[in-house]
């Protein structure tokens, strides 16, 4: 990977559209190239500016009501047409096969995957941290205070980045237990919400594109980077959580000038 090649793929990289291998090659180039790091920061800046400058137009309530009324009117007339064309005898057979298929689908879908089990654990960890008022073992907004605290507590050193200037303020850290091991939990404040970021060493996969899921009203966002497994959990909306994850991924590669 050289600077030209990176220039071509930078947009797709920041959009998270590249495969794990290309992503890893880009990130290893970024680590050693100051001018590409600057280019990445510029990309992040322009995107942040675009985000603030583009309002999301929500559908007005009267439109919602209008559509609701129109749909019910339409459904009524369609039903009358439907009755005239329906083939009655085939219905019983079709219905019973649908029921059988549905039942087997429910069985398959209700078995949680390994990832999903971890998702449930981190969400429980998040909820527990708020309920027990045991949010932080070390309370500090300074990444240079929080990071060393973990040394001696854990058999790995989690990366710690404060994102206060982007709205996600570091509040501290604590030890937690997820996936049958001790993990680092970093706590961030975003507006009036709390984000828990769980970190532990990844297994085989060292870099992966992010996955997101929702569980009982909480959003969870998961990715692997530089050999570490990350899970961000919060009650903020998925778009904000995604932004948080994105900023973290980038600050690991191109830290803002001090």
């Amino acid at each position: 990977m050289d600077c030209n090649e990176l220039n071509v793929t930078l947009n797709a990289y920041v959009d998270g559209e590249l495969d794990a291998l290309t992503t890893a090659r880009i990130e290893s180039h970024l680590q050693s190239c100051a001018s590409c790091q600057r280019r990445l920061r510029e990309q992040m800046d322009v995107r942040a500016a675009i985000k603030t400058a583009t309002p999301y137009f929500k559908a007005p309530a009267n439109l919602r009501n209008r559509i609701h009324a129109e749909l019910h009117k339409e459904a009524k007339t369609r039903w009358l047409d439907y009755l005239n064309t329906w083939r009655w005898p085939s219905m019983g057979a079709a219905l019973s096969s649908v029921v059988l298929f549905g039942a087997s689908l429910v069985l398959v879908l209700s078995m949680p995957s390994a990832d999903e089990l971890v998702a449930r654990e981190v969400v429980s960890g998040h909820v527990r941290s708020l309920m027990a008022e045991h949010l932080t073992d070390i309370r500090s907004t300074d990444q240079h205070t929080v990071k060393p605290w973990f040394i001696g507590q854990l058999d790995f050193s989690p990366p710690v980045h404060d994102l206060a200037t982007q709205g996600f303020a570091l509040a501290g850290g604590r030890l937690d237990y997820v996936n049958n091991r001790q993990v680092a939990a970093l706590v961030y404040h975003y507006r009036k919400h709390v984000i828990n970021l769980f970190i532990w060493p990844a297994g085989k996969e060292t870099t992966s594109n992010p996955n997101e899921r929702e569980w009982q009203g909480y959003a969870a966002y998961e990715w692997t980077q530089a050999g570490m497994q990350f899970w961000a959990v919060s009650d903020i909306n998925t778009t904000d959580l995604r932004q948080f994850a994105r900023l973290l991924r980038f600050s690991a590669i191109a830290p803002p000038p001090q």
Partner: peptide
């Protein structure tokens, strides 16, 4: 421009223009 707080402020002011 480098990313510093000042630039970010002026970027806020430019939001309308950007929109």
């Amino acid at each position: 421009s480098p990313s510093n707080p000042e630039t970010q402020l002026s970027q806020q002011a430019d939001a309308d223009q950007l929109r």
